[in-house]
């Protein structure tokens, strides 16, 4: 299993992760090593085995559809990088 630098660029793009061009080769090498190591899983016959999502096979609980939280917008927006009039600011997306 070998990942080339183009694959690293593609994954980084999918993850919206800024990766410096100069680091692509290092990441390509270490990810290739890791996926080569993971390859041993292919040797295991898992026909008919149910994938395990929770150790105790617990199911998601449902709760009554009631309001339990109070409005804390000001508190949450106090830690935001840029807000104005109760709105989170991002660069313009619609011209």
């Amino acid at each position: 299993m070998s990942l080339d630098q183009d694959t690293i660029r593609r994954i980084a793009r999918l993850a919206r992760l800024g990766v410096d061009e100069s680091e692509n080769e290092t990441y390509a090498r270490s990810l290739s090593d890791i996926f080569a190591f993971v390859e041993q899983l292919n040797a295991v016959d898992t026909t008919g085995i149910e994938p395990m999502a929770h150790p105790l096979d617990a199911r998601q609980r449902l709760r009554p559809d009631e309001v339990t939280e109070s409005n804390q917008r000001d508190k949450f927006q106090k830690i935001a990088p840029r807000v104005e009039a109760g709105l989170y600011l991002v660069p313009r997306v619609i011209e």
Binding site: I11, A12, R16, L17, G18, V19, D20, Y27, S30, I34
Partner: peptide, 23 residues
């Protein structure tokens, strides 16, 4: 905004694991 904030905010091991998982 997304790409650079995440690129600057995360260190090398975190980036590596995000990329393993994304792949």
């Amino acid at each position: 905004l997304y790409t650079r904030s995440r690129g600057e905010g995360f260190g090398a091991e975190v980036k590596r694991r995000i990329m393993i998982g994304t792949y």
